[in-house]
């Protein structure tokens, strides 16, 4: 469903150039849930934004359901949608929930707007009472539910999730993760989930890739992650660090280039 071959992304030019993504390869099957983990700045969001069609400056191949994301193909909106990290920045402050959910339908010329909006709200556990609220009348978790509902309005096959719960507190995170798992089953969604929280990845994904400095370090299935038996030292360090704060571990962290 998702095909990425030799993906390279460079920002800036000359001496200032940063290779944010280097020679990345991975593919995700239909209905599969794939995780991308890695340090901050390792290029996870950048790779995701390429697949979302939001970054025009890349080379290599990147395709969703056989459609390259390079040309602004008219089929893409109905194939792939994205949920962003910050629920406070991803909703337009002057649009009601109703407007946010109707926009994709109106842009794509899909009718039957009212009932679809209500169904989508029920689907994400909000209910019609929330339909005409403004974002400033919603909590972070509720906003993220609206963002998820909005991403599903066009019934895409692929859902890209950029740290969808890292701005939420743990109890809301649990609700959103449960919701995403339920929606994935109900709509047979293919998911690509970026997170730096290994536990979230372990909970949500079938397979994952570990990124460092723009490149994929290793790919593994979730059982290997659960058994904590990665191949690479970099991943071992990541696992160690995710067990909570430890002076010793902190002092021994090394930078892998």
């Amino acid at each position: 469903m998702i095909q990425v071959r030799n993906l390279n992304v460079t920002f800036g030019q000359g001496a200032q150039a940063v290779r944010a993504v280097r020679d990345v390869n991975f593919s995700v099957a239909e209905g599969e849930s794939f995780g991308l983990v890695g340090e901050s700045g390792s290029g996870k969001s950048t790779a995701l934004r390429v697949l979302a069609g939001l970054n025009p400056h890349w080379t290599g191949e990147a395709a969703v359901a056989g459609v390259s994301v390079g040309q602004r193909d008219a089929r893409l909106p109905r194939l792939v949608q994205m949920v962003f990290q910050d629920p406070y920045a991803s909703l337009h402050p002057r649009h009601t929930v109703d407007r946010a959910l109707s926009e994709p339908l109106e842009i794509q010329g899909i009718g039957d707007v009212g009932p679809r909006v209500e169904r989508a709200l029920t689907d994400v556990g909000l209910g019609p009472a929330f339909r005409f609220r403004y974002p400033n009348q919603l909590s972070g978790g509720q906003r993220q539910r609206v963002a998820i509902a909005r991403a599903l309005m066009l019934e895409p096959k692929v859902l890209l999730l950029d740290e969808p719960t890292s701005a939420l507190d743990v109890s809301v995170q649990a609700e959103i993760l449960n919701l995403l798992r339920r929606l994935r089953r109900a709509h047979n969604l293919t998911m690509l989930l970026v997170s730096h929280n290994l536990a979230v990845i372990a909970h949500m994904c079938d397979r994952l890739a570990v990124m460092n400095r723009g490149a994929i370090v290793e790919e593994m299935d979730v059982a290997t992650l659960r058994r904590q038996e990665p191949r690479e030292a970099y991943t071992r360090q990541l696992l160690l660090a995710s067990r909570g704060y430890d002076r010793e571990v902190a002092a021994n962290i090394i930078t892998y280039d």
């Binding site: 901050s40 740290e163 730096h196 704060y245 902190a250």
Partner: peptide, 17 residues
Amino acid sequence: TSALDVTVQMQVLAILD
């Protein structure tokens, strides 16, 4: 540190520590 990955989080915490 909510947007930091675990290793950097650890290092930032060590600075605060």
